[in-house]
Amino acid sequence: MEYIDKQSQRELSKRSNLWGAWLVFHVWAVIGAAMFIGITYPVLIPLCILIIGSRQHGMAILMHDSAHAALFKNRRVNDFVGQYLLAGPYGGDMLSYRRYHLQHHKFTQSADDPDLPLSAKFPVSRESLCRKFIRDITGQTFLRLLMARTKKTNVAGSDAFKRRSPWPMIMINLVMFAGLTAVGAWWAYFVLWLLPLTTWFFAVLRLRNIAEHAMTSTDDNPLTHARTTRANIIERIFFAPYWVNYHVEHHAYMYVPCFRLKALHRHMTAQGHDKTMEIKDSYFDVLRHATTPRPVPA
């Protein structure tokens, strides 16, 4: 089904090298600035960890755009940047992710959807969800995925982190460690890169997965089998950078670059589709929708 006219589709699907370069620069610049602040003012390290973890998630969002060949006009540039400047630093593999993720789009919320285990468990109790987030922010989720990879077993969500080779991650992280060591802040690699990557990154990723598909329909309608979440400035900083909250729009037109999703939302709204789209007003509303309260004892 077409939700907007063909001309609007063509305009919104246009890639932009300028936008692609700006977004890649932006995600690295924010991480670099947060590291500088954390090194200079150690009292602000907890805040810096939240910002860096959010932008590590931002790398995954932009890598996702490159997996759709939507980040740069040139396919080779798109794939190189997605593989080495976005996926590699946090341990992902854009090319492997592309194969996995396109299956998600083809079979969204069906039995063949590789992401279904991430959403099928909902609703869960509030206590269960709290335990999940505690596992994330204490590094237990990271360790579980690491053990699954080492033992070559599968846990929910681990397929998204499969990679053909560890060398891109190793080389890029060695360069980062060497750079921080050269400026006399070797410890920052562990405190301001690895710590957010193994904790807050996974908490934000879990929230994103819940927001996108938990408690949505299981039919083939992209207006209802995905969810758009309205995000305020705080949520966009810490949970939903780079327009990732417009997920219905992404499933309706998956080759529209992330920086045009807000405009796509306006076009779809102008056509009246917001009346049937699955939309929540905030991430708090999403969590409330996806959880159940503790039963009252009889």
Results as ranks from 00 to 15, higher is better:
residue 79 D to R: 13
residue 67 A to R: 00
residue 89 P to I: 08
residue 46 P to Y: 02
residue 65 D to M: 01
residue 45 I to S: 04
residue 45 I to K: 11
residue 97 Y to D: 04
residue 61 I to Q: 05
residue 44 L to A: 14
residue 92 G to H: 04
residue 58 G to K: 05
residue 114 P to L: 10
residue 100 Y to T: 09
residue 40 T to M: 09
residue 95 L to I: 13
residue 36 F to K: 09
residue 109 Q to C: 14
residue 60 A to Q: 12
residue 34 A to E: 12
residue 30 V to S: 02
residue 102 L to I: 12
residue 102 L to G: 00
residue 67 A to H: 02
residue 61 I to A: 14
residue 36 F to Y: 13
residue 37 I to F: 07
residue 53 G to I: 03
residue 82 G to V: 10
residue 97 Y to N: 05
residue 112 D to Y: 14
residue 88 G to I: 09
residue 58 G to V: 00
residue 77 V to G: 00
residue 68 H to P: 07
residue 49 I to C: 06
residue 39 I to S: 00
residue 32 G to M: 14
residue 92 G to C: 03
residue 61 I to N: 15
residue 75 R to G: 02
residue 94 M to K: 13
residue 102 L to N: 13
residue 44 L to C: 12
residue 55 R to V: 01
residue 85 L to M: 12
residue 68 H to E: 11
residue 25 F to V: 06
residue 78 N to F: 08
residue 80 F to P: 06
residue 29 A to Y: 10
residue 84 Y to W: 15
residue 72 F to D: 00
residue 58 G to L: 07
residue 26 H to W: 15
residue 112 D to M: 14
residue 92 G to N: 03
residue 91 G to M: 06
residue 39 I to R: 02
residue 61 I to W: 06
residue 98 R to T: 15
residue 79 D to P: 04
residue 66 S to W: 06
residue 67 A to E: 14
residue 96 S to L: 08
residue 42 P to H: 11
residue 84 Y to V: 03
residue 69 A to V: 09
residue 101 H to F: 08
residue 103 Q to V: 10
residue 93 D to G: 03
residue 107 F to R: 06
residue 51 I to G: 02
residue 35 M to V: 15
residue 25 F to K: 01
residue 48 C to H: 09
residue 30 V to H: 03
residue 57 H to R: 13
residue 79 D to W: 07
residue 81 V to C: 08
residue 70 A to K: 05
residue 50 L to Q: 02
residue 91 G to P: 05
residue 66 S to R: 09
